[in-house]
Write a protein that binds this DNA or RNA. Sequence first.
DNA 1: TTGACAAACGATAATAATTATCGTTTACTA
DNA 2: TAGTAAACGATAATTATTATCGTTTGTCAA
Lengths: 144, 144
Amino acid sequence: MTIAEANEFRALCDRAGIAVTHQRQVIYQVLSGMHGHPSPEEVYGRVKVRIPAISLATVYKNIHVFIESGIFCTVSLHHGSLRVETNHSPHHHLVCTGCRSITDIAAGDLGLPVKAHKLRGGFLAQRYAVDVLGLCPECQKSVS
Amino acid sequence: MTIAEANEFRALCDRAGIAVTHQRQVIYQVLSGMHGHPSPEEVYGRVKVRIPAISLATVYKNIHVFIESGIFCTVSLHHGSLRVETNHSPHHHLVCTGCRSITDIAAGDLGLPVKAHKLRGGFLAQRYAVDVLGLCPECQKSVS
DNA sequence: TTGACAAACGATAATAATTATCGTTTACTA
DNA sequence: TAGTAAACGATAATTATTATCGTTTGTCAA
Ligand SMILES: [Mn+2]
Ligand SMILES: [Mn+2]
Ligand SMILES: [Zn+2]
Ligand SMILES: [Zn+2]
């Protein structure tokens, strides 16, 4: 890694209020160089090439640190367990990143198609699932 | 349950090509009577009141059967494990319900706000995460 | 009705993902 | 450079989910 890259990472950690460690930097670089939507295991696999002694737990911990710091984000919120939708009317979700609550909002508001149709590229869109990520009124109080 | 309800459920199972069992019907009724986005454990808790001997595995199996049959659906696709987003430009996802593949699509196409703003109701929207659920070109071939 | 057969069930073992614990090492700050 | 908190590695524990398997039940044709 270049001096510039190292300084950039140092600044990044400074802003996030976290320490600059070798493991953290390698995980960051590996993630930055990956495409798509890797799982923690995949990240671990790549990091291990550079730091054979690294622990899987360290990879998990740092991924969470990056996500909490807004340096990376996740693909569609992970609710820990499967959740069944009991509301059969077309709607979407307000997902609070503070308390993890999920609230329904009517679909009409977002003006997305309801009928199945084909997108350019050939993908057959059957349903739109929109998560509006943010903070509920309660959690806005706690952060301010 | 009324005769009408029982017949309705029988017809539902007929269409889905699955057997009408007592457990299945109770799970269906409990789910239909629940609000929000219950986890399998929560469903299990309620079903056990009516069928104390039921197995958690049966609840899981039937939830999956209902989802495969389109009788219920899930809240935001569950990818089995945490996934890190490596694409930092604003975009959304085409999620294939056939092969579970996740493909990026540019955000511009959907015309959703990019800046944080407050919705009526007080929720502070910071980011929109749109999953377009459907079938990729490959999987469309397999089903047809 | 009834019997054969497949589907579904319950119990529980197994697996996969994630988190917690804890003793050791390392980075940050004065 | 020393003190302290943060981070690390190893690994145990937890949680969610799935697989296995022997038993029971629903379906359907006779
Ligand atoms: Mn909902
Ligand atoms: Mn993406
Ligand atoms: Zn909240
Ligand atoms: Zn597909």
